[in-house]
C-alpha cells in the first residue's frame, strides 16, 4: 500500500507563480480527479510529481522516500501526458517493447484487447498518429505498465464518444483487476464524477478543494424560490453562485446548512460537481449577485 505525497511544492516560471505551496496526499488504490481550468497549474504539478521538471521548493515522496532521481520510485509512476515523449520515427510495437524493458513488465493480454477494441494499428509510426490515436496509444501504455500510480493528463483528448466509453469501461475493469492509485486530470468533469472517489480542484496554483466526492456533493445545495425568500434563507451561508429568472432565484450554497427553517416557498436540491467547479473557479469573488446569466 503505497502513498504518494506532495509536500510544499512551489513553482514559478519567470515572474508568474504557477504553484504556491501545494500539499496533497494520494492514497493507495483510490481514483482521484484533478480538476482545474486551463493553465491552472495541473500539468506543471504532474510534471513535478514525475520529476520531469523541478520544483522551486518542496518535495514529492512515495512512502516517505523522495522520488527525485530515484529509479525505483520513478518506476512506480506512469504519466500519460499531452507532450510527446516518444521518438516520432518509432513504431508503436517498438515503443511497447521499450516500455516493457524499462518498466520491467507489460500486460500484453490487456494490451491486445485494447488494441482490438480501439482498432489501433501497432505497425504505425508514432509520429504519424492522429490526435485521437495518439491519446489512445498512450492510454494503452498507461493501463498496461506495472505501476502503483497511473496518472492521466487529458486522457480523452481527441477521442470520440465511443472511444471515451471504451476508455472509462476498460479503466474500471483494469482498476478492479489490479487495484492501484489513479489520477485523472480532465476537463470532462461530468464523465468522471462517478468514477472518481476523491476530487482535487486547483486554481491559479492553489488547491481549492481536496475531499471525497461524496462529501463534496453532500455539501452542495441549490436553494430556489422567490428572490427575497431565497436571499433571506441563504443569508450567512456560503453562497458561491446564483441564477435569476424573473422573480425566481436560485442560490447555490456550498457548505452545511444549519438548522434554519425552510420556508414553504423555497425548494432545496443538489447540484453537480461541474456546476460547483464552474462557480469555484470563475475568478471574480462570488457574492450573492446575479452572475449566472453570462
Amino acid at each position: 500500500m503505497s502513498v504518494l505525497e506532495v509536500k510544499h511544492i512551489s513553482k514559478s516560471f519567470g515572474t508568474s507563480n504557477v504553484l504556491s505551496d501545494i500539499n496533497l496526499t494520494f492514497e493507495a488504490n483510490k481514483i482521484y480527479g484533478l480538476l482545474g481550468r486551463n493553465s491552472a497549474g495541473k500539468s506543471t504539478l504532474l510534471n513535478i510529481i514525475t520529476n520531469r521538471i523541478f520544483a522551486d521548493s518542496g518535495e514529492v515522496t512515495i512512502d516517505s522516500e523522495n522520488v527525485a532521481e530515484n529509479d525505483s520510485k520513478l518506476g512506480q509512476m506512469f504519466l500519460m501526458s499531452e507532450v510527446n515523449t516518444y521518438p516520432a520515427g518509432s513504431t508503436l510495437s517498438f515503443i511497447i517493447k521499450q516500455t516493457e524493458q524499462l518498466y520491467g513488465g507489460f500486460n500484453h493480454q490487456l494490451a491486445n484487447r485494447l488494441v482490438n477494441e480501439f482498432e489501433l494499428d501497432l505497425s504505425q509510426k508514432f509520429g504519424k498518429l492522429s490526435t485521437g490515436y495518439n491519446s489512445i496509444f498512450k492510454l494503452v501504455l498507461a493501463l498496461c505498465v506495472p505501476v502503483k500510480f497511473v496518472i492521466f493528463d487529458e486522457p480523452v483528448l481527441g477521442l470520440d464518444a465511443n472511444h471515451r466509453e471504451i476508455f472509462y469501461t476498460e479503466l474500471l475493469q483494469s482498476y478492479s483487476d489490479t487495484p492501484r492509485t489513479i489520477i485523472l486530470s480532465t476537463h470532462l468533469i461530468e464523465e468522471i464524477t462517478q468514477i472518481i472517489s476523491d476530487v482535487i480542484v486547483i486554481d491559479h496554483g492553489n488547491i481549492l478543494l481536496d475531499q471525497t466526492v461524496e462529501d463534496v456533493l453532500s455539501k452542495t445545495h441549490a436553494v430556489a424560490g422567490p428572490s427575497s425568500d431565497v436571499n433571506q434563507y441563504t443569508n450567512g451561508l456560503n453562497v458561491i453562485g446564483s441564477e435569476t429568472m424573473g422573480n425566481l432565484k436560485t442560490n447555490y450554497v456550498f457548505g452545511d446548512l444549519d438548522d434554519r427553517i425552510l420556508p414553504d416557498t423555497v425548494q432545496l436540491s443538489k447540484f453537480d460537481l461541474q456546476k460547483l467547479f464552474i462557480f469555484l473557479t470563475t475568478g471574480a469573488p462570488v457574492k450573492g449577485g446575479n452572475k449566472g446569466e453570462n
Binding site: 472509462y168 469501461t169 474500471l172 475493469q173 478492479s176 483487476d177 464523465e191 462517478q194 468514477i195 472517489s197
Partner: peptide, 15 residues
Amino acid sequence: STTEISKEFHINPAT
C-alpha cells in the same frame, strides 16, 4: 459483480 456494475454505469467500484 461490483466490477460489472461499475463498468456498465461508470461508477467507482467502491461506491
